[in-house]
Design a protein around this nucleic acid. Structure first.
Lengths: 209, 209
DNA sequence: TCCAGCATCAGACTTTCGTCTGATTCGCAG
DNA sequence: CTGCGAATCAGACGAAAGTCTGATGCTGGA
């Protein structure tokens, strides 16, 4: 068995136990090896520079720098870098962001681990890998889902449970303007009041608690 | 090394990769062995009967029967059964429920895996194990947090984004009564409107999306 | 037995929410 | 250059939401 031919994988996940499991699966595959692992996005960037893995297996929910930002940062320096995102399914927004950032594969924690190896193989071969449910979630995305930055700002405050008045104070604008933004947000998210807006924002992963 | 002296652990988690990691850590510990594993609460009950493990490592978020219900079911038949809950921290309610159901230990995914072994040892020795942040979360719990079953029902509909009117229709009561329930819920959760109620309910794990 | 708590309802009142109409400014793409 | 969309504000309106007072029936524990 020639070591140099093994596919080098960098594992990024904030759960140590999960990293152990992933590494075990990868290292049990004869032509793959987990060369390094970490629980932080910042360290992932450093480790990538150091080990130049063929594929990076990346969780999105990380303390500090998010997985998406880590992908963006690494890709800005290494355009050929390939990523498989590994996460518990948390709404279509995460998926969309990750793919936009340059991920080639998406794997859901909780799928049988053969699927993980399959995904790694396909992505390493230059292809893509998206599970069926992920494809469906992306297909059902309406383009209206993209809010302006100001609207996302207001939505964040809505999720914080703020009233129109408080939001106005916090943003230094009038309540009338806030109402206007809220109305637009409701239309874009296709809901009829702020409570529903909060629920779908959390469901779709537009914001995190 | 005498096999019969090993501490037998049953692993219950719906993420296969996580199970692999947990089992690897346990089996790497000389005096412990992961005798069985599953991703479902129902199967956990069967496997317990079959293997009689010394400790069951239980995730709370499972498809089908919840981890808490699995603990309750197993305990009703085997009062001496010991449990360590292993979960991503999702609010004080889960913890409270799990301990009330009879768990002796609580471990957060994302802690170093030495801590897991430590927890298993202590619980197997007849003790308890609660990480510091968990203790704090439990300490800051107000007794007001317990809602009546009717109130929980209303809260669930609030989280569903329903209006008072829709809730009234769904429960077959008057809107006046719904308003009354909502008022009580707001006071109990210590918030001032339904949107905030939804947010804290999700934060504290009173309800799941 | 009696009180406390839960669930139910009603009316009235204030505040907030959400919509609508209409208007101004700014930057950017065609 | 022109127009479109974002962001800003205003006023006014109806519809919800939330509070308060007060009242009834039921259950279960002290």
């Amino acid at each position: 068995m020639e070591e140099t031919k093994k596919v080098k994988v960098l594992v990024v996940d904030d759960h140590p136990l999960m990293r152990v499991g992933i590494a075990a699966i990868i290292n049990a595959t004869p032509d793959m090896t987990a060369v390094a692992q970490t629980g932080s996005g910042e360290e992932a960037v450093k480790l990538f520079d150091q080990y130049r893995p063929d594929i990076t297996l990346m969780d999105l929910r990380l303390p500090g720098m998010s997985g998406v930002n880590a992908i963006r940062t690494i890709r800005s320096r290494h355009a050929q870098a390939r990523f498989v995102v590994l996460t518990t399914y948390e709404g279509d927004e995460d998926i969309h962001q990750a793919l936009a950032a340059g991920a080639q594969g998406y794997m859901i924690k909780g799928m049988p681990h053969e699927a993980l190896i399959d995904a790694l193989r396909r992505v390493h071969a230059g292809g893509r890998f998206l599970p069926q449910p992920i494809k469906l979630a992306l297909a059902s995305r309406t383009p209206d889902a993209d809010l302006s930055s100001r609207e996302r700002q207001v939505l964040a405050l809505l999720v914080g449970g703020k009233s129109n008045n408080e939001i106005a104070a916090e943003l230094g604008i009038t309540e009338a303007t806030v109402k206007c933004h809220v109305s637009v947000i409701l239309r874009r998210l296709n809901v009829s009041d702020r409570t529903q807006a909060v629920v779908v924002a959390l469901q779709r992963g537009l914001l995190h608690l």
